[in-house]
């Protein structure tokens, strides 16, 4: 097969163009790939910043919750005990030695009770330090506090108490999550009995909180207003799954599952 000179020239030009176009497409592909990689990295940084901001917000909320508890405790418990002590001491008549001794003994017992309550409050104030000791301890303290009100009967299975490792950021969010669920139960459920089951199964943490309250319609629009939207958001932050089952007048069960620590 013979080619004319012009055909050979055309072949050379065409082949050279092909050999030049190939690197152009390769470089465009690489440039696009690097651009996407850069965008992805920037997105990761933004997400990380959002997460850190959310952790900070959660930290503040935990502190607020603690302050509310302390205020309520000071007013309802320690305040009452000290008022009673003052009343007792005021009514002492030194001439009636026997009665005075009894009243002083009563006052000493009331003061001792107040000291015990104050110690418990001091512990609560160190919520972040408690988290350093482990999520199990921090949660247990929350449960104890709710139980102490005498309004609710609690059944607790807290396997986290046996753990000796922590996950600081996740722990803070989980503590706030449980606080939020308990707040919802206290505010809306009208329950008498609360069951908490916390189990760690093959690196997965299962938290199930059940109450026997009035329940609500999970599918009904607007149930997010019950504080569940922040519960949902926090579960997403710790990359967990949330499952809510509720039957009207029977109660509610909330199940959270996540990778832990």
């Amino acid at each position: 097969m013979q080619f004319s000179p012009s055909e050979i020239v055309n072949i050379i030009i065409l082949a050279t163009c092909v050999f030049l176009i190939a690197p152009v497409f390769l470089l465009i592909y690489i440039k696009e790939y690097l651009r996407k990689k850069r965008a992805h990295e920037e997105e990761k940084v933004i997400l990380n910043q959002k997460f850190e901001a959310e952790v900070l917000k959660t930290q503040i909320e935990v502190q607020e919750q603690t302050m509310q508890t302390i205020a309520a405790d000071l007013h309802d418990n320690i305040g009452q005990l000290l008022s009673l002590t003052a009343l007792n001491l005021n009514s002492i008549n030194i001439e009636h030695t026997e009665k005075a001794k009894q009243k002083i003994d009563n006052s000493i017992e009331l003061v001792n009770n107040s000291i015990r309550e104050l110690r418990a409050l001091a512990k609560l104030m160190q919520a972040e330090n408690i988290l350093m000791m482990g999520l199990g301890t921090a949660l247990q303290q929350e449960f104890d506090h709710v139980e102490k009100t005498g309004r609710y009967q609690l059944t607790i299975n807290n396997q986290l108490l046996e753990l000796n490792f922590v996950s600081p950021q996740k722990d803070l969010i989980l503590l706030r999550l449980v606080q939020e669920i308990f707040n919802n139960i206290i505010k809306h459920s009208n329950a008498n009995h609360i069951t908490v089951d916390i189990q760690l199964r093959e690196k997965y943490l299962d938290i199930t909180i059940t109450d026997d309250g009035i329940g609500f319609d999970v599918n009904k629009a607007g149930y997010n207003g019950l504080g569940l939207s922040s519960v949902r958001k926090r579960v997403e932050m710790v990359q967990g799954s949330l499952n809510i089952n509720s039957v009207i007048n029977k109660g509610t069960s909330i199940h959270i599952k996540l990778l832990y620590p």
Binding site: P5, I8, V9, I12, I13, A15, T16, F19, L20, A22, P23, L26, L27
Partner: peptide, 30 residues
């Protein structure tokens, strides 16, 4: 990128150079 363009693009030049120098002087200019 410049190196890639030059050495990949010169493939045709290198392939044809020997042939053209001997048999096809008309394609030398291109």
């Amino acid at each position: 990128a410049a190196v890639l363009f030059f050495y990949f693009g010169s493939t045709v030049y290198n392939l044809f150079m020997n042939v053209i120098f001997s048999n096809k002087p008309f394609a030398y200019e291109i």
